[in-house]
Amino acid sequence: MTMEKKKTVIEVRDVSKTFYNREGDHLVVDHLNFNVYENEFVVLFGPGQCGKTTVLNLIAGLELPTGGEVVVNGEKVVGPSPSRGMVYQTTNLFMWYNVMKNVEFGPCVRGVKKAERRKKAQYYIDLVGLTGFEKHFPVKLSGGMQQRVGIARAYCNEPDIICMDEPFGHLDAQTRYLMEEEVDRISASEKRTVVFVTNNAEEAIYLADRIILLHNCPTSVHREYLVNLPRPRNYVAPEFLELREQITKDMDDTIG
């Protein structure tokens, strides 16, 4: 319906990925097809080890497909690019830089003038709620705060697409809920196309415009769900719980 009018940002066209190693060939992604539209928040959802991260790496350009192609804004993905930002489960912060220098890293290496990139970085540091921690080194921050730095670093580079690879997988449940609220708030104020990987159904429904349920390895699309609940979503609303039950049941089918 409304999707028809939206601009397509990511096209995953018949993508396959085989890893070759000594034990033999390992087919991880099998003829995968889906599109992501502008400013859409898409969650790639599936059981652990199902190949979700590989799909994300293919979109990011950290891996290249062995069959088919990934097209972003009309151009074929052939490697990493600053137009695609990444937020990682293990944060991958630059431990030798303070919060400010981590967040401004992208603009800095792309040659943005200091005054301008400082201003920009400060905006995103404020946005993720780290005001006052600009001079702190990551080692002194909690897991949740480190992940906030990772999110600010990705947004500050102003990419077209932000890929998030189970960013809250290592956090405790309490912090996880808090960070989900934060991502919901940030993505509402900073409109971007987001591809978010998780194996947590609750997290998927809380955040997604659309959920793509992936088959267990080798990965292909099992089913899609449009989530039309009003935001911020209520984890215990009947519609939320109903969808959660449906998705969990469908996921069990992909394994069984």
């Binding site: 950290l62 990493p80 293990t90 290496v109």
Partner: peptide, 17 residues
């Protein structure tokens, strides 16, 4: 850490940077 190197490349760093 190769993942951290990749993070830098993803943000637009060249080999020298």
């Amino acid at each position: 850490d190769e993942n951290i190197l990749n993070a830098a490349y993803m943000l637009g760093a060249n080999k020298v940077q």
